[in-house]
Amino acid sequence: MSTRITVTVNGQAVTRDVEGRTLLVHFLRDTLSLTGTHVGCDTSNCGACTILMDGQAVKSCSMLAAQADGAEITTVEGLSQNGEMHPIQEGFREEHGLQCGFCTPGMMMAAVDLLKNNSNPSEQEIREALEGNFCRCTGYHNIVKSIQYAAKKINEPEKEVA
């Protein structure tokens, strides 16, 4: 049994037939070949599959593709604009916020959502906002710094971030 859905992914509208049980993450990875969004667990605990849906961070393994009909989705592939890295991407690079890179897309999406709602989060607020995302490589230390870097960059775009 399949349903026809139309979603806007990274600014582009796509219409596809999806099986009723297809998860959004599998739709992104298998149907649209957007493999930057990862699957790290089967209990919606790890956050590797986090994307932005209508501007909000959502775990794409915990919803069906059919439920995303009409939605606007941003994946990691859509973060940089016109060849310019998003401040969060820049932050992760500058502060070594990634090692193996597997949790990174989900981490960055969760961080984008946080910074949208709180442009100047404290360390504690950052750590709490990352509650839904596992990283096994970094001990979170540099992820926190990466997000602080991005916050600074977003708030003072013209200044060089030290």
């Binding site: 994946t75 991407q89 990634l98």
Partner: peptide, 21 residues
């Protein structure tokens, strides 16, 4: 030195085994 490999991971272009079709 900032990591050479970061770019592909930050843009979703890392190529893990399950990404290969």
């Amino acid at each position: 030195v900032k990591r050479v490999e970061d770019k592909r991971f930050l843009t979703g272009k890392g190529r893990y085994t399950d990404d290969i079709v």
